Simulated scan of single mutants.
Amino acid sequence: MKKIILLLSLIILVSCAQEVDPTVNNMNDIFDSKDFTIEFVLDDSRTESMSFIEDIIVYKTAKETKRSTITFDEALLINDFIQSQFKLHDASNSEIPSIIILNTAKKVTLKIPKYEAAYSNLITKLEL
């Protein structure tokens, strides 16, 4: 039941968000909401996500869903990862792979090629 509610929430979240330019201000607006999702579009058939609500993280892959409390250090790791990838965004890149950051109001797409190794390293550090 919880998975269905989470999936429905994610679908509603994606369908309602307005695509905005990938700027620091737009991304900070999303993060300030304290209720947002980061989708990692790795290839045509593989998308993973981290959803955040206050101090809870829900990590979803095709194989599993994990829910836990996020620590300050873990939040810093995720923040550092997003900042490092933001610098690599190029609007001329393909939409796949990409990192999508969204909440109910806004959606930012970072077009970043070859970020999977850095992402895998992040997942390992977070023990997800």
Rank of each mutant, 00 (worst) to 15 (best):
N103I: 08
F86N: 10
E39I: 14
S98Q: 00
K2T: 10
M50D: 07
E127V: 07
S51Y: 07
D43Y: 15
L102R: 08
Y115D: 04
Q83F: 00
S51P: 05
L102F: 00
N79R: 03
K106H: 01
L76S: 12
E116S: 14
K111A: 10
S94I: 12
H89G: 10
Y115F: 01
D29L: 14
P97C: 07
D43Q: 13
T61N: 07
K125A: 14
L126H: 07
K111G: 14
L7S: 03
I30R: 08
K34M: 13
L13D: 11
M1Q: 11
D90H: 14
C16M: 15
F36E: 01
I96A: 01
N25I: 04
K60P: 07
A105F: 06
I96F: 06
V58G: 01
D29V: 08
E48F: 06
L122H: 09
I100M: 09
I101K: 04
V20A: 03
Y115S: 09
T69A: 08
Q18H: 15
S15Q: 06
I123Q: 07
R67Q: 15
L77Y: 06
L13V: 06
I78F: 05
L7H: 08
S49N: 02
T124S: 02
E54Y: 07
S45K: 13
E39P: 00
S15L: 08
L6Q: 10
K3M: 13
L7W: 05
C16T: 15
K60H: 11
F81Y: 11
E116D: 14
D55W: 09
L110R: 03
D80T: 00
L110C: 05
K107V: 00
L122E: 03
K63E: 01
I99Y: 03
I12T: 07
V24K: 14
K125Y: 07
K125F: 10
T71G: 11
P22G: 06
V41H: 05
I38D: 07
E19D: 04
D21S: 14
